[in-house]
Write a protein that binds this DNA or RNA. Structure first.
Lengths: 193, 193, 193, 193
DNA sequence: CATGAATGAGATTTCATTCAT
DNA sequence: AATGAATGAAATCTCATTCAT
């Protein structure tokens, strides 16, 4: 058990190191040697936890995406109203991205780069299922536009990533007011009327 | 003249090869050797046209961004109405991205990856100036929400990239109907009322 | 222990290979690939022991200079007479250069070439301190001309390198008689009377 | 004739550029491209004047050695006394090295480095013939020690190079007094009594 | 379980040289 | 005579991965 604990710590340290390095210089700058050094282990040790660099990055992606989804849907309540639920989820997502900038930045890189396996990406997408369900419900109730969930995602969720990037680069600070305006825009783009 | 022409051809071939390789596997997989081979020149020749790999990628970014902007603003007419102009620009952008998928895919990668110099990125941003001007005008006329241009961009322009990615991966085909719906969502997100 | 021993062996083999290659064709002809092959390791292995080619050459310089100084001053005895001491040192130096031609040849190259860092060169110079001290003592005792140590070095020590070069090129063989004459010339150039 | 003149200028410019570059970073840093640029010609032009890089360096060596010898023996008068003649030559050499530091530095590099062909080096050595003749004369007259000319050279001429190097590195400035002391040491090392 | 050492393959970049003009 | 463009070969250095311990 002590050993297992230790192992989990190392796995976590390795993922954390990878996250940090990929963020600051892309996948190419996250060499296994640097990852190992930052996680205070030997390069060889990485291969006890991951099959390859590709596997390391994929697992990181899944881990982060899962933690992102967990945060997003924590307060999701199937019985509540659609808009209320959407707002909760949207805010939770925005909050997660503001609070966990490294993770957010990594996800936005992964989404636009061939660095993650297609299969893994699909796996990550499944985590968003509750949101898709909510939209279907909203469409049935005539609250949300009857368009493809990809459009809904593109207009109501995806923009958050752009705003995050701007914030991280110091170009556009995100305070509560801006967040509120952003949510408004998100809702306006997908809601009927 | 013959010499100069030849040179321009090679430069173009090199940029084209880089574009193609970066798209299929990220910057890291676009090795100078592969780029050279695909452009049918010796690796050493690349350095007659570009200072370094970084310079090659930066110049590609600027070239593509410039061609994108040229297409986007081709029919922009300062005297026309704001919404008409915005629609023209938006459609031109969408058309460009649908017609030049490689370029579009490259731009979306560049925007979320540390592969382009910050300075070069800023340079590229300037190309979007006419759009910013249009928004300012729209805000004065009370047609467009009084929010930061970054928000406007995030909600009305940035989503196009997401839709492109989905189309490229065969997940969400973009026909005229979807495009129309997308524009609607874009306009709804930023317009007043 | 086994590991450490092995490491020292490899470091030594790499330095030895570099020495040999630099001697036969200058720094430029001592490519990392050739050094690696001659030391029976992979090129990558070199970088486990040295930071860069520059570092490799610098360390070689320091190693050789140190071993040279060790030989030179082995029998140096502060209590003995100045001339006796000088003769011992001078002969030890000449003997070292005759016995270790590769090292001697390398040192004479280093001293006239921009291949060694200035800092490293200074470091190497410190090894000659006992000789400088001896000269100072000799000057106090009125045995040695009251001139800059650089002049003393130029006339009594530096010429050995020239003779070595000639010997190596088969131009001027150095037997005991010649050595004796050479020492005489050295002493005549720096001694008073 | 105009053409010939032009050619000589270019040859000179190329040699000058090579001299400068070899001095500041060794042969390896004097790439043909850099030499061409510094001489304001195309790389291809170099090959109209020299067969190869090796040939370029060899010819530079011979040119410099010849100009050095010309200066050294300008005032040499077979009828004058040995010591007078030697002093004239020695001073002319020292003066040349002080006045033409670039050339001097290059010569001292060439003499200790495998960068010059052995054949070319021999060729250069011939230029020193008048000095060897003078020594022979001096030995006959019982003024100069009866030792190999290589010893004589090593002790009376070679040290100048060392002093030059020190001066160039700012370690040991050479004023008239030091020069006088240096000559004294030179003469003491080779003269009888 | 953990590692330091080792490496073959490959990355970016430079170089001496040639050739069409 | 002169050149700018081009290049194959090679230089330095890095990397993902393995293996003996």
């Amino acid at each position: 058990m002590a050993l297992l604990q230790k192992s989990i710590d190392k796995r976590t340290a390795l993922l954390k190191a990878t996250l940090c390095l990929v963020n600051s210089g892309g996948v190419q700058s996250a060499s296994m040697a640097k990852v190992a050094k930052m996680a205070n282990v030997s390069p060889a040790t990485i291969y006890l936890y991951f099959d390859s660099k590709q596997d390391l990055v994929n697992q990181l992606y899944l881990d982060v995406k899962t933690s992102f989804a967990a945060s997003a849907f924590k307060e999701y309540c199937p019985k509540a109203e659609v808009k209320t639920n959407f707002e909760k989820i949207w805010l939770a997502m925005a909050t997660y991205k503001l609070t966990n900038k490294e993770e957010a930045s990594f996800l936005s890189q992964s989404d636009n780069t061939p660095m993650i396996d297609e299969a893994t990406r699909q796996e990550g997408l499944k985590q968003m299922q509750p949101l898709f369900d909510l939209w279907t419900q909203g469409q049935k109730e005539g609250l949300i536009k009857d368009i493809s969930p990809y459009l809904l995602y593109a207009y109501s969720i995806y923009p958050i990533a752009f705003l995050m990037n701007m914030e991280c680069r110091g170009i556009c600070p995100l305070d509560k007011k801006v967040i509120a305006k952003a949510f408004e825009a998100a809702w306006d783009s997908i809601s009927l009327k």
